[in-house]
């Protein structure tokens, strides 16, 4: 048996030594792609690519919460029953609840910095929806309009953004 066994060979790529004093520190590369599902929220993300904003709503009569949820969730947290989809009528006008100017973003950021992240109140929605302002300077109480990245979509939440109201309808990124 032993004579038939091939010699075990090292086939890896030597780890790069980043420093050797006061202790050896090596580079440990990581490159991974996860398979992330949007699950029951898939209609929402498909909607963005079609220029639609879809929210969910609890239709259980016994439940105390009948306002819309954005971000949507498939099931109601109050009564635990499945919710239904409802498209928001266009134009979608919201109010800036609060904002932040992101200057130093983490690795992998897909927006050019600095940019404004805004949290938007929408009529009939029980939550406050986070997004980004494509141009202009936000302030609390300012009206903003939802726009969609239907051409060459990112297939992420970044397919939706806001612009100030009133605004030049021709402004494009």
């Amino acid at each position: 048996m032993a004579s038939k066994r091939k010699t075990t060979k090292y086939t890896g790529k030597p780890a790069k030594v980043l420093q050797s004093e006061p202790a050896i520190v090596i580079e440990w590369p990581r490159s991974l792609a996860h398979r992330h599902t949007y699950g029951k929220l898939s209609p929402f993300f498909k909607g963005l690519t079609e220029g639609k904003l879809l929210a969910t709503k609890c239709v259980n009569r016994e439940c105390g919460e009948h306002r819309l949820w954005l971000p949507p969730r498939a099931d109601c947290p109050d009564c635990n029953q499945p919710m239904v989809w409802e498209e928001l009528p266009q134009p979608i006008i919201g109010t800036v609840h609060t904002y932040a100017r992101v200057e130093y973003a983490g690795a992998g950021i897909e927006l050019t910095t600095p940019y404004f992240q805004i949290d938007v109140e929408l009529p009939g929605v029980c939550t406050i929806f986070k997004g980004y302002l494509q141009h202009g300077t936000p302030e609390i109480g300012m009206k903003v309009k939802a726009c969609f990245r239907t051409e060459d979509p990112s297939n992420t939440i970044l397919d939706m953004y806001w612009i100030p109201v009133p605004s030049d309808a021709d402004v494009r990124s």
């Binding site: 609060t98 983490g106 949290d119 986070k130």
Partner: peptide, 27 residues
Amino acid sequence: IATAACKDFETRLSRIYSAYYAPMAVR
């Protein structure tokens, strides 16, 4: 650290935690 924000609806919107506290500071 920003993956401790909601991955579908928040993380891509900044990828840094100060950006989730800054709106609170403004408000």
